[in-house]
């Protein structure tokens, strides 16, 4: 049993490595996500004109983040539509594959958080009346954790949506957006509190909820994924 679990983890690591390597080799897809994120930030910057209240600031940040997340994760199972799928189906344990994809989602989230948050602060500056964030670490951590709960949910939704032969991308959005609402509400509240410098005791529960939601959706995804994979 232990060796089985170990081989699953090895598979997962191998899948994550493969995904990441393929991303680098086919650089245009990575570049497309980055371009999308930076262009969205720039549009936000142009329309906001450096005079943004905290509420609008967080709203725009999460809109940019949400759609960048969709572009990044939405094509996670694209490769598995073709001959690659048949090869993986015979060679790879589905749980390992799912864990590998989730690992890839964690890496993507980390990169995306750094990129979106960095460019957002670079262009838009801080919200009106603030010199810097009240709790910079909470802002970063909250953005990362919020992003993580978003991407882990999207991994599962994308896995389901990619089963549809045509128009899987649009279906991913239809299925994914309502599911992301609770996470986004929590994440916007958390980042807003971190910006305002709300006492940490009042923010304390929200990261726990976000972490619980990410873990929960990941666990359900791992349990259910084998059924889709072998369908």
């Amino acid at each position: 049993m232990t060796s089985g679990f170990r081989s699953t983890l090895q598979t997962a690591a191998a899948v994550t490595r493969m995904e990441w390597r393929l991303e680098w080799r086919q650089g245009h897809q990575l570049a497309a996500v980055a371009l999308f994120a930076v262009a969205s930030v720039y549009v936000a910057f142009q329309s906001a004109d450096r005079q943004t209240a905290t509420g609008a600031w967080t709203a725009m940040l999460w809109l940019v983040y949400l759609f960048s997340g969709f572009t990044a994760i939405g094509r996670l199972f694209d490769r598995e539509r073709t001959a690659n799928r048949r090869y993986l189906q015979w060679t790879v344990d589905p749980l390992g594959l799912m864990l590998g994809k989730l690992g890839h989602a964690i890496l993507t989230t980390t990169a995306l958080t750094a990129l979106v948050l960095g460019t957002f602060i670079l262009f838009l500056g801080w919200p009106e009346g603030l010199e810097s964030a009240g709790h910079p670490w909470w802002l970063m951590g909250g953005a990362w954790l919020g992003g993580l709960s978003m991407t882990t949910t999207l991994v599962f939704v994308t896995a389901v949506a990619s089963q549809v032969q045509a128009g899987g991308g649009a279906l991913g959005a239809v299925l994914g957006l309502p599911l992301l609402l609770p996470q986004l509400i929590l994440a916007t509240r958390l980042t807003r509190g971190a910006l305002d410098g709300t006492p940490v005791a009042m923010l304390g529960e929200m990261p726990l909820f976000l972490a619980a939601l990410s873990t929960g959706t990941s666990v359900i995804a791992c349990i259910l994924f084998p059924y889709i994979w072998r369908a």
């Binding site: 089963q163 279906l171 889709i228």
Partner: peptide, 19 residues
């Protein structure tokens, strides 16, 4: 929506059940 998108696909039962 998912069921409608899967249409005549024979895997519709299983994928819909997962969802």
């Amino acid at each position: 929506v998912l069921r409608a998108a899967l249409g005549e696909d024979e895997r519709v039962g299983r994928i819909a059940a997962v969802y």
